[in-house]
Design a protein around this nucleic acid. Structure first.
Length: 264
DNA sequence: AACTGATACAACCGCCAAGGT
DNA sequence: AACCTTGGCGGTTGTATCAGT
């Protein structure tokens, strides 16, 4: 017997989400919290796959998301993390508050990858595209063949790169067993915070999970109700965006209903 | 202005692991 | 132990937008 589809494919809409659908999903999550994605479409009145709802929420509608391009620091962090973790985008994203795995993956594929290649760094291995050994062999050969002064050789690589994007060190290798070295970065104290598991556990932005008691809050977030209200205030841009598309913002959300005790 | 190729990003697909029955 | 459900992940595709001709 084959795997059951996650939802009834016949009655499922695909493609870009409309403002109306977003509104329904946001309303539902705000009212009931994140629970049972499979049942979300039916309960929220959406003709979407539960999986699609989850993705839409986690990648786009989640209140703690940052918008816009990754800044220099974030980009550098992604490169560093990728050197250690490989294509484990979710793990990388966990270290970048407000960023999703999808966003980072996209940014990697469209920006960082090209940037590294341009700089002569292999985006997969984070090694120089032409290994130093090879360069030295070539240089030595040139010296032998043409009696050149080695110091005078202008090697394209990776002098500049090294300063800006430090390639991975031996201890930054990624093993395939998944037991990645997640030790802190000794050189950069700020990295220790990012690497630490405590950092992950204590991130107030990480709404999408149960609280310390293993329970979801009214909004499905482990954070307090207060943070939700602050989010509503701080994310007027999202609300305004929806207004621009004919969505009346959160006017239809009964703020009082946010104080609901039960999830269903 | 119209066309075309490149780019960026949202969304989908298939697979896998964990947990429940 | 075997099977099923669900959530999550990474790779890939689709599409809107931009830039160049």
């Amino acid at each position: 017997m084959g795997r059951q589809p996650c939802c009834d494919k016949l009655d499922v809409k695909k493609g870009p989400w409309t403002a109306e659908e977003d509104k329904k999903l946001i309303n539902f999550i705000l009212t009931h919290g994140q629970c049972c994605w499979r049942s979300v479409p039916k309960l929220a009145g959406l003709r979407r796959c539960g999986k699609s709802c989850r993705l839409r929420w986690t990648n786009y509608l989640r209140p703690d998301l940052k918008r816009g391009l990754l800044n220099e620091d974030e980009e550098q962090l992604v490169i560093d993390l990728h050197a250690r973790l490989g294509n484990r985008w979710s793990k990388i994203a966990a270290r970048l508050p407000g960023r999703t795995d999808n966003e980072i993956k996209n940014h990697w594929n469209t920006h960082i990858k090209k940037k590294l290649i341009k700089m002569g760094i292999d985006p997969v291995t984070h090694e120089p595209l032409q290994k130093p050994d090879t360069l030295h062999e070539a240089a030595n050969k040139a010296v032998n063949d043409h009696h050149l002064n080695l110091d005078a050789l202008q090697l394209e690589l990776p002098k500049d790169c090294a300063a800006e994007f430090s390639p991975p060190t031996e201890n930054s290798s990624t093993d395939e067993s998944g037991s990645t070295s997640e030790s802190g970065n000794e050189e950069d104290p700020s990295m220790n915070l990012v690497w630490s598991e405590a950092f992950l556990d204590d991130m107030s932005w990480n709404f999408g999970g149960p609280d310390s008691k293993g329970e979801y809050g009214e909004l499905g977030f482990s954070s307090s109700e207060e943070s939700t209200f602050s989010w509503l205030l701080e994310n007027r841009n999202i609300i305004d965006d929806h207004r621009n598309f004919g969505f009346g913002g959160f006017g239809e959300i009964d703020i009082n209903s946010l104080d609901m005790g039960g999830k269903f």
